[in-house]
C-alpha cells in the first residue's frame, strides 16, 4: 500500500531536528551540482574543452531565455534563475535513480523554492525602485487594487509551489500504481512521461520566477502574456 504523499519520512535525527528523506536527497543534489560546477569551472580555457563548451552552451541558452522573457540584461538574474532551473531539473529527474524519490514530490521543498522566488521578487523590486517606489506599484492602476495586488502576491507564490508539487507528486503516484499492478517494463512509458513533465515543470517554474521578478523590476508590469496566468 502506498503511503500518504503529504507525510515525509524521517531518515535520522540531527539533534532536535528530524531530517527527512527529501532533505537528505536535496543535500545530495546540492553537493552534486555545486561540486560538479566547481570541478568543471576549475580550469577555464580560451579554447574550451568538451565539458566547458557544454556549460557555455547552457549559460548562453539561459541568458537568451532571460533576455527574451524579462527584456533586461541577464547578468544580475543568471545565478538565481539558473540555479533554480538546474536544481529543479535535477530534483525532478532524481527518480531515475532507484530508491530515490524526487524531493520536489514533497510539499516542503516546493514551498521553500516558491518562498525564494517570493523574497527575490520583493528584494529585486526594492533594489530597482526603492522601498517607496516598490510599495507604490501595489497601488497601480489605482488604489482600489491594493488588496487585490497583495492577495495576488500570496496566491501566485502558493500556486507556484502547488503546481510543482502536484505535477511531480502525481507522476510518482502514477508510477507507484503502475508498479503495484505490473512490475516489469510497464512503468517505463510512465517514467518517460515523467522525464518530459519534469523538464517542462522546471522550465515553467523558472519562466514564472523570471516573470514575477521582471514584473517587480520593470516600469510597465505584466507585458509578458504569462504574467496574467
Amino acid at each position: 500500500m502506498m503511503h500518504s504523499p503529504l507525510i515525509s519520512e524521517t531518515l535520522f535525527q540531527l539533534g532536535p531536528l528530524p531530517i527527512g528523506k527529501a532533505v537528505a536527497v536535496t543535500w545530495g543534489l546540492l553537493a552534486l551540482l555545486a561540486g560538479g560546477s566547481w570541478l568543471l569551472t576549475r580550469r577555464l580555457r580560451l579554447r574550451p574543452t568538451r565539458w566547458q563548451s557544454l556549460l557555455e552552451l547552457l549559460v548562453a541558452v539561459l541568458d537568451g531565455q532571460i533576455r527574451d522573457t524579462m527584456q533586461v540584461s541577464p547578468a544580475p538574474y543568471r545565478a538565481l534563475i539558473g540555479s533554480l532551473f538546474l536544481f529543479i531539473l535535477a530534483a525532478n529527474w532524481a527518480e531515475l535513480i532507484p530508491g530515490i524519490e524526487p524531493p520536489t514530490a514533497s510539499l516542503e521543498t516546493d514551498a521553500a523554492l516558491a518562498l525564494i522566488v517570493f523574497v527575490a521578487s520583493i528584494a529585486c523590486g526594492v533594489a530597482s525602485r526603492g522601498p517607496a517606489g516598490y510599495l507604490r506599484t501595489f497601488a497601480e492602476p489605482s488604489w482600489v487594487m491594493i488588496p487585490l495586488n497583495i492577495v495576488e502576491q500570496l496566491t501566485r507564490t502558493f500556486s507556484l509551489s502547488v503546481r510543482l508539487f502536484g505535477n511531480i507528486m502525481s507522476g510518482v503516484f502514477v508510477l507507484g500504481i503502475a508498479l503495484s499492478l505490473a512490475g516489469l517494463l510497464v512503468p517505463i512509458p510512465f517514467m518517460a512521461l515523467d522525464l518530459l513533465t519534469g523538464a517542462i515543470q522546471a522550465y515553467i517554474f523558472s519562466v514564472l520566477a523570471m516573470v514575477f521578478i521582471g514584473a517587480a523590476v520593470k516600469e510597465t508590469a505584466g507585458t509578458h502574456p504569462a504574467s496574467k496566468e
Binding site: 500556486s159 502547488v162 503546481r163 508539487f165 502536484g166 505535477n167 507528486m169 502525481s170 517542462i200 515543470q201 515553467i204 504569462a226 496566468e229
Partner: peptide
C-alpha cells in the same frame, strides 16, 4: 502546463 495546473489543483 499552465492549463494542466487546474487539473493538478483538483488532484491535490
Amino acid at each position: 502546463a499552465m492549463i494542466e495546473t487546474m487539473a493538478i489543483y483538483c488532484l491535490v
